[in-house]
Write a protein that binds this DNA or RNA. Structure first.
Length: 835
RNA sequence: GCCGGUGUGAUGGAAUGGUAGACGUGACGGACUCAAAAUCCGUUGGGCUAAUCCCCCGUGUGGGUUCGAGUCCCACCACCGGCACCA
């Protein structure tokens, strides 16, 4: 009988559709397990092979958890608002809602084709008004708690998307989505005060079971630094607050720098002798794009403010004030004290403008370079009352002195900025706010939610930076909810990240029309036990959703301060590089490729992309080999956390393995017990598979199953052996497992599907053979192997070792100085010549 | 510059300080077949060799610790990722 994967997979998918064995039951008495994957963005291209990797892994985990007796919530949904859909709609003249509907249908078909054990009754779609009603509701709560505000400020503007971007969406000065140049533009935007939560977002990472690189990246991004805020005076009498991490170096301050946008610069302009020079510099600085601003190793530029000076509060000395764009208006106070002796940037600036450099920490040569001490035990010099103290002691001493003088205090600063939350695009959640000339910004009453996105004729973005919705005058003009007078709606929409910031909560209670999620459902399911997703979301979705969850915790919607107990991440799937030098024979061709493609030509595997034509479509793989082979291969491909390379050839190996499993049915003896010969390998494999799945080491779990099957072929097997194999295989290849389970008769006799059978248990005592081959080393080098009885005592082992012909030969004329015996593993003999 | 990570056969990748290369792909040899595919069995790190006997070498490089190092320590090289004029 042949393994007809096509028919088998259809058959079982239909059965699951009917009997719904994957439904999660809120409130059930079994222990709960909430496994979460990042819901996909339903693009027109459909699933690519990057999706099945995390999806299959979590499916395997969830299937195993069910067999272990857990009540499992494994949901799926669609993050369907966003630019690609809108752009596709513009190009093809189809309404985004139609595009979305079609794409979701296609994704659903593909996901079902792969046999995932999602609870399909809980599907969430972020573009559904019943869903985004609650996204809008959360926004209103943020607004009511002072965490949403409208502000005019320079924002990142993507020249291609014609839309503002959050800082998190700008990567190396370009738009993370389309790669176009990002410029700074002065715009009035809705902002979310994520900075209010910066401290908690850092602190609470400690207790979470997140992989380290996620924690590190979030900490990097939030960028906490501790120091002091100090008020310097200007000769005009104005206060100039600055932030420094090194208050100990204040005696080394020889000038100050303000950012070009600093408010005091505007205020002082009439007093300045060189006002023209100053305004010219401001103009240049303002016109720079993010890319230009962050260019490496660029020269320090700046302008001295002539007519105003600063005063160093520790010694009363007057110092010059400059403006320079190396000081950022958005960090700290937008002004710094400059200590050129001990800060590289200040040093470069001082050299360029010929400013004095004072050494205040001993140990370097400040004329040659800034001395930035690596440890804090260096000693203070030229620093008045700090002289002789170590840096470690000088920092608190100075901080204390500043506080006593009333001119400074300890302060923590963050790199994290508030979240720019509005987008000048159509396909997003409308922001439920109204602007009234009398009352200002007024939130829509909750009773009017959802504020439904209206149908418009054209969703083209506009060059003037207004949302397409602004042209919908019928919709825009409304009554003020406060005074009833004429008012206008906000026409910007929410960013892509809004809907995904809380979707995992909606899965817990997806059909609730009274609340975002009921407290009871949330208390039962929350927090998510295991969340797997891409590293690219670490400082986007993952950070945003932690912020929203903390806010929801503060207002009593959820019962834990963190949404996800555990976070893991998968590596990317790479495809064949068509321009790889290894693909050609001659030197000339190789040189030509290197010339044309540079370093890319040297890489055998690269990111899959349409332009390279190396994209693998899961539909094709399933058609050729079946879903179970696809699932198995994507799990076997390599270390889950690392990037892996797709190989059409290697897929066959997974298919071959499933064929071998299937073909075992013909030769299995009709005996429900394990065969004696296979007992040990079976128990070892149960242990290995059980532990490896929990650690996401799917590749080695599958390798162990392959080893076991190889043993079955070598030893013969019983139906009992086979049934254990089926159970262990069922999370990976569920369709094949169910069919084999039925055919081997277990289901017929008990009415239980493989997936409903308890997960096999192993017995340590049965795991080992009665005989063991161990290594014999002489002086640490392997010289022979011998077979010993399991757990033999040292004397017996040495007897066997000495009886070995080769060892005996090596021992001729030698005496044993030392023997090292590792039980059931190895013997190491240290020899020296006999006298 | 700072912070992480990685480096193992032709190839994807395995190895709680204890027989390096599990498992898979590819290649080679054999069985079955008129033949091919599929399947099954075997071989497959390099050198030396008549030999699947010995011996030597071998996990990016150079040192070290240890009876024993892919694994631990020190220094370096290469690649990948994150942050970056953040005071």
């Amino acid at each position: 009988m042949k393994y007809e994967f096509d028919a088998i997979e259809k058959k079982w998918q239909q059965r699951w559709e009917g009997s719904k064995p994957y439904a999660a039951i809120t409130g059930d008495k079994r222990p709960k397990f909430y496994g979460l994957i990042e819901f996909p963005y339903p693009s027109a291209a459909g699933l690519h092979v990057g999706h099945p990797r995390p999806f299959t892994a979590m499916d395997v985990i969830c299937r195993k958890k069910r067999m272990e007796g857990y009540n499992v919530l494994f949901p799926i949904g669609f993050d369907a608002f966003g630019l690609p859909t809108e752009n596709f709609a513009i190009k093809n003249h189809i309404h985004p809602s139609i595009v979305t509907k079609n794409n979701i249908e296609n994704f659903t078909r593909q996901l079902k084709m792969l046999g995932y054990s999602f609870d399909w009754e809980r599907v969430v779609d972020t573009t559904d008004p019943d869903y985004y009603k609650w996204t809008q509701w959360i926004f209103l709560q943020l607004y009511k708690h002072g965490l949403a505000y409208k502000a005019t400020m320079p924002v990142n503007w993507c020249t291609s998307c014609k839309c503002v971007l959050a800082n998190e969406e700008v990567v190396e000065g370009v738009c993370e989505r389309c790669g176009s140049e990002v410029i700074r533009k002065e715009k009035s935007q809705w902002m979310l005060r994520i900075t209010e939560y910066a401290q908690r977002l850092v602190d609470d990472l400690d207790a979470l079971d997140f992989i380290d690189r996620v924690k590190t990246q979030q900490r990097n991004w939030i960028g906490r630094s501790t120091g002091a805020q100090v008020v310097f005076k200007a000769t005009t009498g104005d206060d100039i607050p600055i932030f420094t991490t090194r208050p100990d170096t204040m005696f080394g301050v020889t000038y100050m720098v303000l950012s070009p946008e600093h408010a005091l610069v505007h205020q002082w302009l009439p007093l300045l002798e060189n006002a023209d020079e100053v305004t010219a510099y401001q103009r240049v600085a303002a016109s720079k794009s993010d890319l230009e601003r962050t260019e490496l190793n660029k020269d320090k530029t700046g302008v001295l403010l002539r007519g105003v000076r600063g005063v160093n509060p520790v010694n009363g000395e007057e110092i010059p004030i400059f403006i320079s764009d190396y000081v950022l208006s958005t960090y700290g106070t937008g002004a710094i004290m400059a200590v050129p002796g001990h800060d590289q940037r200040d040093w470069e600036f001082a050299k360029k403008f010929d400013l004095p450099i004072i050494e205040v920490v001993a140990g370097g040569d400040v004329e040659k370079e800034a001395f930035v001490a690596k440890d804090d035990t260096a000693v203070m010099v030229n620093s008045g009352f700090l002289n002789g103290l170590t840096v470690r002691d000088a920092i608190p001493a100075m901080t204390k002195w500043l506080a006593e003088q009333g001119i400074g205090e300890a302060k923590v600063n963050f790199k994290l900025r508030d979240w720019v939350f509005s987008r000048q695009r159509y396909w997003g959640e409308p922001i439920p706010m109204v602007f009234c000339p009398q009352c200002g910004w007024v939130p829509l009453p909750e009773s009017e939610l959802p504020l439904v996105l209206p149908n418009v004729e054209s969703y083209e973005p506009t060059d003037d930076g207004e949302s397409p919705l602004s042209k919908m005058t019928d919709w825009v003009n409304c009554d003020c909810p406060n005074c009833g007078g004429p008012a206008k709606r906000e026409t910007d929409t929410m960013p892509q990240w809004a809907g995904s910031s809380w979707y995992f909560l909606r899965y817990m209670d997806p059909h609730n029309d009274k609340e975002a999620v009921s407290r009871a459902a949330e208390e039962y399911w929350g927090p998510v036990d295991w969340y797997n997703g891409g590293m690219e979301h670490t400082t986007l979705h993952l950070l945003y959703s932690r912020f929203w969850h903390k806010f929801l915790y503060d207002i009593g919607v959820v019962h834990t301060p963190e949404p996800y107990a555990k976070r893991t991440s998968h590596g990317m799937i790479l495809g064949n590089n068509p321009h790889y030098v290894g693909n050609v024979e001659t030197e000339e061709e190789k040189q030509a490729l290197i010339e044309k493609y540079g370093s890319m030509a040297l890489r055998q595997y690269v990111k899959m992309s349409k332009s390279l034509g190396n994209v693998v479509n899961p539909d094709d793989v399933v058609k050729a080999y079946g879903a179970d082979t696809m699932r198995l291969y994507i799990m076997f491909i390599g270390d889950f956390e690392k990037t892996a390379s797709w190989s059409d050839e290697a897929v066959k190996g997974s298919k071959r393995f499933l064929d071998r499993c299937w073909n075992l049915m013909e030769q299995a003896k009709d005996d429900p017990q394990h065969s004696r010969k296979n007992e040990a390998v079976i128990h070892r494999t149960i242990k290995k598979v059980t532990e490896d799945i929990d650690q996401l080491k799917m590749n080695t779990a599958i390798a162990a199953l392959m080893t076991m099957v190889n043993e079955f072929y070598a030893n013969g097997c019983t139906k009992g052996d086979l049934q254990t194999l089926i159970l262990l295989l069922s999370p990976f290849a569920p369709h094949l497992a169910e069919e084999m389970w039925e055919l081997t008769g277990y289901a017929a006799s008990t009415g239980v599907m493989a997936m409903q059978h308890p997960w096999p248990k192993y017995d340590e005592a049965l795991m080992v053979e009665q005989e063991k081959e161990i290594a014999v080393q002489v002086g640490g080098k392997l010289r022979a192997t011998v077979v010993i009885p399991l757990n033999a005592d040292d004397e017996t082992v040495l007897g066997i070792v000495y009886a070995n012909e080769k060892i005996a030969r090596l021992m001729e004329g030698m005496e044993v100085v030392k023997t090292i015996i590792v039980k059931n593993k190895l013997v190491n003999l240290i020899l020296k010549p006999k006298k």
